[in-house]
């Protein structure tokens, strides 16, 4: 068993690392070499592709736009999720089942089907009340906040359910209101989970493709995923340039997780989900 386990661990790690390293290797290849020997490990190593990708499409601008959109969007989704998740887990909310179905139900409709109805509604609001969430970064943040609040709610519902009841009951007995109990006891305890929820939200919203394209119709702001998609035009697909561009766009998320890894490790993944 001992050696068997070691072999499994080594194989699993290699299987995970290899494709990542391969993308990096491809990004460092010259185009000509990629065409003639796509599977070669040796050969030239060049950083030119990164510079070319950066210059070809405004990746810097797209990354900035994506951050401007997803950070408020993640904050909103987390805010909604913490409140609703806490209430559904710990408070006597009427029609709990119905609320849960409402929270989960939206997840069964693919975003691809909802982008145009969402866009139509935004235009209709613009034309009837003169205020709209179309074509602005804050508008897209709102949409992302709502779309990703569903799973956020389930995430925090699951977290708060595992919070020992006696902690909260003590506060109740002291005569604190529901709001006071939440703010003074539950919320401080949940801070690490909130950090994790925020990070995962940024990641999920960062990865979204279609809403980012359709809900920003002037093209003044472009999300990182749209920029990557624009990168492969009708007549250009794959290759070292695309590999370099994807690495550039993936970097901010890597950095984010690095910053948040303390909470990721010790809290959510370190024992807060209990049997």
């Amino acid at each position: 068993m001992r050696w068997g386990a070691r072999i499994v661990m080594v194989v699993a790690c290699l299987a995970v690392l290899f494709p990542l390293l391969w993308v990096l290797r491809t990004a460092l290849k010259s185009d000509a070499e990629f065409i003639s020997q796509p599977a070669a490990i040796g050969g030239t190593f060049t950083l030119d592709n990164f510079a070319a990708a950066w210059n070809a499409v405004d990746l810097g601008g797209a990354i900035r736009d994506s951050l401007v959109i997803t950070i408020p969007g993640a904050m909103l989704a987390t805010f909604l999720g913490v409140l609703a998740g806490y209430a559904l887990a710990k408070l006597p909310v009427p029609a709990k089942r119905l609320l849960l179905v409402l929270a989960v139900g939206g997840l069964t409709i693919p975003i691809a089907a909802l982008v145009i109805p969402e866009f139509d509604q935004a235009l209709w609001l613009r034309d009837t009340i003169g205020v709209s969430y179309v074509d602005s970064t804050w508008g897209l943040s709102l949409v992302y906040g709502a779309f990703f609040a569903s799973w956020s709610t389930l995430f925090f519902l699951s977290w708060f359910r595992d919070l020992p009841a006696d902690l909260l009951e003590a506060a109740w007995l002291d005569g604190a209101s529901a709001a006071q109990t939440f703010l003074r006891v539950a919320l401080p305890l949940a801070v690490p989970a909130i950090a994790v929820g925020l990070v995962l939200n940024v990641f999920l919203q960062w990865s979204e493709v279609l809403l980012g394209l359709i809900m920003l119709p002037s093209g003044d702001a472009t999300t990182a995923m749209t920029a990557i998609a624009s990168f492969s035009t009708q007549f250009r697909v794959g290759g070292p340039l695309t590999a370099a561009a994807t690495i550039i766009v993936a970097l901010p998320i890597f950095l984010l997780f690095l910053l948040a890894q303390r909470w990721l490790r010790t809290e959510i993944f370190g024992g807060s989900i209990k049997g």
Partner: peptide, 8 residues
């Protein structure tokens, strides 16, 4: 607690 989620 649930109202903001439901509304949005």
């Amino acid at each position: 607690f649930v109202a903001p989620l439901v509304v949005l």
